[in-house]
Amino acid sequence: METDVSLEILGALAHPTRLDAFRLLVRHEPDGLSTGQLVEASGLTQSTFSTHLAVLAKAGLVLSEKRGRQQIQRANISALKSLMLFLAKDCCQGRPELCEPLIAELTCC
């Protein structure tokens, strides 16, 4: 992942509404949530939330698909993985055992 891409993703997540929405979508993988469910969970109006959703989609964090009459939003787990790898790539000066507690915490829950 390039630095500019990671900065765009981090910028998209640097707002409470967008971070909450993305985390909610991650919890609902692989099924995703309808746009209406996301709006309801956010407590915002449709138009306000749509702006936040557009920022997440532009950053590549959210994928949208049409199912029947609904737009289903899903977290782009591949983008999340790429960002996490980018952030941890040079972790611990080449001593991966120092990152083991982080990996253990991610896999335990």
Rank of each mutant, 00 (worst) to 15 (best):
Q70L: 13
H52K: 06
F86T: 10
D31F: 04
D4L: 06
K89Y: 09
L98Q: 12
I103E: 14
C108W: 03
P101K: 00
G43F: 13
A14S: 09
D90S: 10
A79R: 10
G43Y: 08
E105L: 12
A57T: 15
T35P: 00
K66R: 15
D4R: 10
R67P: 01
R18S: 08
A59Q: 05
E105P: 01
L38M: 07
I9C: 08
L56I: 05
P16G: 03
A79C: 11
L63T: 11
E29C: 05
K58W: 02
A88V: 05
L83Y: 07
L102P: 00
G68I: 09
Q70K: 13
Q71W: 07
A75E: 14
S78I: 04
L24N: 06
D20H: 15
L102G: 03
L83A: 08
E105S: 06
T45M: 06
R69S: 09
V39K: 08
F22Y: 07
L102N: 04
D4W: 05
E8W: 04
G60S: 12
S42C: 03
N76L: 08
S34T: 15
L98R: 10
F49K: 00
R18L: 08
K81Q: 09
L102D: 07
G60D: 05
H28A: 02
K81M: 13
R95I: 12
D90I: 05
Q93L: 09
L25S: 03
G32H: 09
I9A: 10
V26M: 09
G60R: 01
C92T: 07
K58R: 14
I103P: 01
E8T: 14
R23D: 03
S82Q: 13
E97S: 03
R95H: 11
M1H: 10
H28C: 00
C109P: 07
R67W: 01
T45C: 03
E2M: 06
R27F: 03
Q93V: 07
C108L: 13
L24K: 04
L13R: 08
L53V: 02
L19G: 11
A88S: 08
A12G: 14
E29D: 09
C92M: 12
M1T: 15
L83P: 06
Q37Y: 00
I72T: 02
C91F: 04
D4S: 15
G11S: 11
A79I: 11
Q71G: 01
R27C: 09
H15F: 08
S64C: 10
V26E: 10
L80Y: 06
T17G: 05
